[in-house]
């Protein structure tokens, strides 16, 4: 059920972060990877544009929402990194109601 993650095998998978290729450890969560990678926010609140980042890391707080493989608002702490995964931070996203929004 539990196993140790070898973080020393650092560049185990290749993912895309905001479109740029990045090497990352395997088998850690998307949120953990983003915390490791930089102190940039993972998203801006759609309500008041405040910068947000992972808080609870156990799926409760919904603060680590990011786009993963084209699906927005995924809980980064609950998704394990995989090779070729495309992660996009949700920084000041356009509204679903506005032109240029998701598929409108």
């Amino acid at each position: 059920m539990f196993s140790l993650i070898d973080l020393c095998a650092a560049n185990a998978v290749g993912v895309y972060l905001d479109g740029e290729p990045v090497q990352a450890p395997a088998r850690i969560s998307v949120a953990a990877f983003l915390l490791m990678h930089s102190d940039q926010p993972m998203r801006h609140s759609p309500v008041n544009d405040e910068p947000r980042s992972a808080f609870c890391m156990i799926g409760n707080c919904y603060e680590c929402l990011v786009e993963i493989d084209g699906h927005p608002n995924q809980q980064g702490c609950l998704v394990t990194l995989t090779d070729q995964m495309r992660i996009v931070r949700q920084l000041r996203r356009p509204s679903v109601f506005s032109k240029g929004g998701r598929d409108e």
Binding site: S45, P46, V47, L65, P94, S95, V96, F97, S98
Partner: peptide, 8 residues
């Protein structure tokens, strides 16, 4: 639903 921007 999830939170949305600019709900009008």
């Amino acid at each position: 639903t999830e939170r949305l921007r600019d709900v009008n």
